[in-house]
């Protein structure tokens, strides 16, 4: 193809406009290198377009070069491309997270403290309830003892000491007999616990002739704390004795097992 025809085809104008394929671009490039008139033509087309578009620039843009160079960090210094949005996390972010952590830790601590206090309160309540029971028991105990003391101080009370008999000389007991209300208080602290299968049985005796009358067995002897037992006694007793009998008691006292015996001293 003649150079003139090539130029007249309009391909160079499209080349400058960027409308050609890669192959066509390469072809034009080669033509430009081979034929100076093609190069001159391209330069003229380009210059015309640049002049026209430059006339369309709305205002001066010198100041933009400085802004661009600032953004590219090109101010006579080493060329380094640094991300513009580098300070991704500022002090506020760190402070915020730190504050959040502190508040979080504080809340955990408070929660833990609260739980500990709740456990303590719970413990204290249990202890309080326990103490209340103890106080109640002590009160009851005191009432019982007050009652007992009143009984023993009653002027109508007859005190009968029971001494140890035979092999059981170490044993002792005491009977407090209130004839007015037909009851006795047996203080049996000086007796041992009844062995398995045996119970203590209390007897009222008249002496001439010797006639025993059972006042009953003390079935709860071993478990009783103060070993003082209130027993009904409507008899004209002259003496009191205590024997160890098989569980359920006996009709008549087993004399070999007579632990203590005491005679009522007549006023």
């Amino acid at each position: 193809m003649e150079t003139k025809d090539y130029i007249d085809s309009g391909i160079l104008e499209l080349f400058v406009a960027g409308q050609l394929t890669d192959n066509k671009n390469k072809e034009v490039q080669e033509m430009m290198l081979k034929h100076p008139e093609v190069l001159r033509e391209v330069l003229e087309i380009e210059t015309a377009v640049i002049k026209l578009s430059s006339a369309m620039a709305p205002r001066d843009n010198k100041h933009l070069l400085k802004l661009i160079k600032d953004k590219l960090k090109l101010n006579g210094q080493d060329v380094k491309v640094i991300s513009i949005n580098k300070p991704k996390y500022n002090w506020l972010t760190y402070t915020g997270w730190a504050a959040a952590l502190i508040v979080g830790a504080g809340m955990l601590w408070t929660l833990n403290q609260n739980q500990q206090l709740e456990v303590k309160v719970s413990d204290a309540e249990i202890e309080k309830a326990y103490l209340e029971i103890q106080i109640e028991e002590a009160k009851t105990d005191l009432a019982v003892k007050d009652n007992l003391l009143n009984v023993l101080r009653d002027r109508n009370i007859i005190s009968v000491p029971l001494g140890g008999q035979g092999d059981f000389a170490d044993s002792y007991a005491k009977v407090y007999w209130n004839k007015a209300d037909n009851s006795i208080y047996l203080d049996a602290q000086g007796l041992p616990d009844a062995p398995e299968g045996k119970v203590w049985q209390v007897w009222s005796l008249t002496l001439n002739p010797l006639t025993p009358k059972s006042l009953g067995t003390i079935d709860n002897f071993n478990s009783d704390d103060n070993k003082i037992f209130n027993i009904v006694n409507a008899n004209e007793s002259q003496a009191f004795g205590i024997t160890l009998e098989p569980v359920g008691g006996s009709e008549t006292p087993t004399m070999e097992q007579l632990y203590t015996l005491g005679v009522v001293s007549q006023p």
Binding site: V49, I50, L52, S53, S54, A55, M56, A57, P58, N61, L64, L65, I68, K69, L74, G76, V79
Partner: peptide, 21 residues
């Protein structure tokens, strides 16, 4: 950098016009 500046001066008005258009 100098080459960049020179190219900017050569084409900035033209590009400015194209962009503004």
């Amino acid at each position: 950098e100098k080459a960049f500046e020179e190219l900017y001066n050569m084409y900035s008005d033209s590009m400015h016009g194209v962009i503004y258009n």
